[in-house]
């Protein structure tokens, strides 16, 4: 998501005089989430989808593609990263609890 975050400070709207920007998400195979792959410029949704297919899945990298107008993405503020993603509380992790080995898997 870093590249998305970083981009919001520069281009969230359609570039002046050009095609709007679309973010591309590819599902590598069934059972996996769509993952952000990059972006394309295109005049409309159908063309964006076609471009996304051509640009990001030329070697069968995916079985499904989403395109989303970049302007529709709301991203967290990179400067607020420390406040938003503070160190995780240790007791939320299983390793915080000492369970003797002989108890077996817990």
């Amino acid at each position: 998501m870093n590249d998305l975050n970083d981009r919001t400070t520069t281009t969230t709207a359609a570039p002046v005089g050009g095609y709007p920007l679309w973010e591309v998400f590819v599902r590598a195979r069934r059972g996996l989430n769509h993952v952000h792959a990059g972006s394309v410029h295109a005049p409309d949704a159908d063309t964006a989808l076609q471009h996304a297919r051509d640009v990001y899945t030329r070697r069968a990298e995916g079985v499904s593609v989403w395109v989303v107008p970049s302007a529709a993405i709301v991203a967290s503020d990179p400067d607020a990263r420390d406040d938003w993603f503070e160190g995780s509380k240790p007791y939320r992790h299983p390793t915080f609890y000492t369970i003797p080995d002989e108890v077996g898997h817990l």
Partner: peptide, 21 residues
């Protein structure tokens, strides 16, 4: 559903351990 289960199972482990503790 399967993906939600993976996420949940990962988080659930501490629940059982804190109970046993």
């Amino acid at each position: 559903y399967a993906r939600a289960m993976v996420r949940i199972c990962k988080e659930e482990s501490f629940h059982q351990r804190q109970g046993f503790e």
